[in-house]
């Protein structure tokens, strides 16, 4: 069991996939930007390389970067992979930017089966398509739900199947942006 330093991990990843972007230390942790098309290959290498052995996917989630104070502003959805190695006890964070309009990222479900559920959740709530996923469909919302709720420009539905969202006479001083009419 030998935990590698952040720089060593980044160098090892870059030797496999040279287009891996800059390393940005974020709270003492390597943060690698991976091009969307390469993520499945990078993932497989991270898992199989004996020195790296990232055998566990701690979490796979996404952040909608709309409204995030980037200069210049980005119109992307960032898919975040948090990896951990039980064998070596080191960690890494991968970040993949997918454009909002056509966000498709290769699935890593074949590398870590835990990703089957994580990717379904990101697909459901952010609308990111994972190509090659064995069962990509909504996991939390009903199948006929409109939109992807965790996107920053999501409009709350006014009703669902004709049942209004708010109670009679219920109102709030501030409220989330709500769609008109039927969902």
């Amino acid at each position: 069991m030998t935990a590698l330093s952040h720089e060593q991990i980044a160098a090892a990843v870059r030797s496999v996939c040279p287009e891996v972007g800059d390393q940005r230390a974020s709270n003492g942790r390597p943060f690698l930007h991976v091009p969307a098309a390469a993520v499945a290959d990078v993932a497989r290498c991270l898992r199989d390389d004996p020195a790296l052995r990232f055998d566990a996917l701690m979490d796979l989630t996404a952040v909608d970067l709309l409204q995030f104070p980037y200069t210049p502003p980005r119109d992307d959805i960032a898919v975040v992979y948090l990896l951990f190695s039980y064998a070596h006890r080191h960690k890494i964070t991968l970040e993949v930017f997918a454009p909002r309009q056509a966000c498709a990222v290769p699935s890593v479900a074949a590398v870590w089966p835990a990703a089957i559920y994580f990717e379904r959740e990101v697909f459901d709530l952010f609308g990111v398509t994972f190509t090659g996923h064995p069962q990509l469909r909504r996991i939390l919302m009903p199948d006929d739900w409109q939109g992807h709720p965790l996107r920053k420009d999501y409009l709350y539905p006014a009703d669902y199947h004709g049942v209004p969202h708010l109670r009679d006479g219920q109102s709030f001083s501030t409220s989330p942006p709500r769609a008109e009419g039927t969902s």
Binding site: L140, M141, P149, Y154, Y156, P157, Y160, V163, P164, H165, L166, R167, Q170, F172, S175, P176
Partner: peptide, 19 residues
């Protein structure tokens, strides 16, 4: 009435008496 979820939740029904 939806309780703590009545305002900011998109998925919670505000009161089962609608059904």
């Amino acid at each position: 009435s939806g309780g703590p979820f009545s305002k900011w939740s998109y998925s919670v029904l505000n009161g089962i008496d609608k059904y």
